[in-house]
Design a protein around this nucleic acid. Structure first.
Lengths: 101, 101
DNA sequence: AGAGTATGTAACTCAGTAGCTATATAGTTG
DNA sequence: CAACTATATAGCTACTGAGTTACATACTCT
């Protein structure tokens, strides 16, 4: 149980993959286009997308020379949002503690 | 942004830490007791707890020889629950797809 | 103080993986 | 078919981190 959950967290524990998901939030994109925006190699992006696709987080669609990827399960954004909120809450609490001391 | 979120995910991307949090769900526990239940070394558990504490996910309380740890932010369980639900949903979808083919 | 116990830390090994380059594969266009 | 383009994959390097052992630290009890 913990193993499966940890594996899913590990998939998301990578800034490049999170940025990929964020770029895909607006709609499907080709590999090259994503690599350009991220400023990293096409090979690297392709590998990350393969991992995300295998986990079912993104879907792929081939069209001629291009492969277009899209977010398959928007629940991942809710997850990130929840983490983000928690981080903000912790930061606020720490700031308040500092003000008191 | 993506970096901070990824870092939090990475903290949770470890079965041992997830099992620790699960054990702490019922209430505070000492390091040795947790190590016993997990079946791994005290040093290892101590290190994991230190990481969780630094991130503000668990709290510590010293009492004589023992250090008792507890969950500081129950939001982490909601997060795990959400992941769990997503995994189940994906598994169901895959099973349905297999049945159709 | 000295023995004993619980926890924390240092140093090390080993496995996993992000990133790269180079190459293979697949599709398009002349 | 040949040249070109987009994507995937293989092989490699470098780094991170989980786990271990050994030791340090802190506390209790006699």
């Amino acid at each position: 149980m913990a193993l499966a959950i940890a594996e899913r967290f590990r998939l998301l524990a990578e800034p490049t993959r999170l940025r990929l998901l964020d770029l895909l939030a607006d709609g499907e994109r080709s590999v090259g286009s994503l690599a350009g925006d991220l400023g990293c190699s096409q090979a690297n992006v392709s590998k990350h997308l393969a991992l995300l696709a295998e986990a079912g987080l993104v879907g792929r669609r081939r069209d001629g020379l291009h492969t277009y990827y899209c977010v398959a399960d928007p629940a991942v954004f809710a997850l990130c949002g929840q983490v983000c909120e928690t981080l903000r809450r912790h930061a606020d609490a720490r700031a308040a503690a500092l003000r008191e001391s």
